[in-house]
Amino acid sequence: MNRFIVAEPKKCIGCRTCEVACVLAHSGTADVGSLSPTSFAPRLRVIKGLSISTPVTCRHCEDAPCANVCPNGAIVYSQNTVQVLQERCVGCKTCMVACPFGAMDVITVPATKTFNGVTVANGTKAEAHKCDLCVDRAAGPACVTVCPTKALHVVDRAAMEQTLRKRQERAALEAENSPLI
């Protein structure tokens, strides 16, 4: 089973600390000074509605629509997550259209090329942009670490099974107390 991040809306206070942590974790430098309004693209978004506040992000689906529709094989399953191979992304936005959660975005970033050890600007590069579960970060997803109310959690097979087990036990008890027949 793929891992994914769930948010508990009851605990979310809409502070957007997770958004900043997400961008910094992917900035390559961890330098707060590297942020800017034009390039700020968190991979989870805090949504505030009439009666809900919660971050929304990728579910790392088992049968991922984004991966299924990608014409260039840029979206793959890896380490129990769904990942984008940016070198293959052409920015066609089919994945954006396919994702039912609005968790996929396509952004453009400055591109560079290296020739004879010299790195120069090379136009822009499109990137399918979504939660990668901070797979390269030893401490796990940055959003989960910083959330002041601990509203964000990584759910993997073991965590899911524990929850299922609890619910099954509760269902069993309820079955005893309220027989249908």
Binding site: C15, R16, T17, V20, A21, V32, G33, V146, P148, T149, K150
Partner: peptide, 12 residues
Amino acid sequence: GELCLKGYYGWD
């Protein structure tokens, strides 16, 4: 051991 938005990112 918890901080909020300003606590984490309000020093620069």
